[in-house]
Amino acid sequence: MEPVVQIRLLHPGSRFTPGEALRCEYHVQLDDPSQIQALEASVMWFTEGKGEEDLAVQYFERHVPADYVGGDMRGPWQFSTLLPRSPLSYPGVIVKVRWCVRVRVFLVRGRGVAAEVPFQLGNLPPTRALLRPTAEPPRADVEASDELDE
């Protein structure tokens, strides 16, 4: 049986403000707990779009069976972390910044399994490419240079 990872954000909605605490719960559904070699959970941002992918973790934890009596690591697990003030989630055109909670399960045999739950940090609206730039000054300015000193 393939393991199934379930992640739940303990938060109403998936939008967070910078500096807010993120609490999360996750567990692994698997018949034989001895199959789990390691478990990794991370809160991270990554980029999408035209460029090569960049990523950085805000929170990271790794569990291996040797650290626990009985070695059953199916969970449930909980963690909490304070979100940073940047980078904000950004739905750009060729650069997008996404935040997520990602859990990876490494198995003794076979390939690992990963699951992630996206969330939004901040509240930036979608961006679009500028085809025709706006040419409207925001407000009337002081006209002549000799008025500067007044």
Binding site: G49, E52, S86
Partner: peptide, 25 residues
């Protein structure tokens, strides 16, 4: 020299400056 003084308002929903290995705003 030509001189000009004025005001600008940053858009309220502006993305902050961003710089990572391969991407930037």
């Amino acid at each position: 020299p030509f001189e000009r003084r004025g005001h600008l308002i940053m858009p309220p929903d502006a993305m902050h400056s961003f710089e990572s290995g391969h991407n930037a705003v």
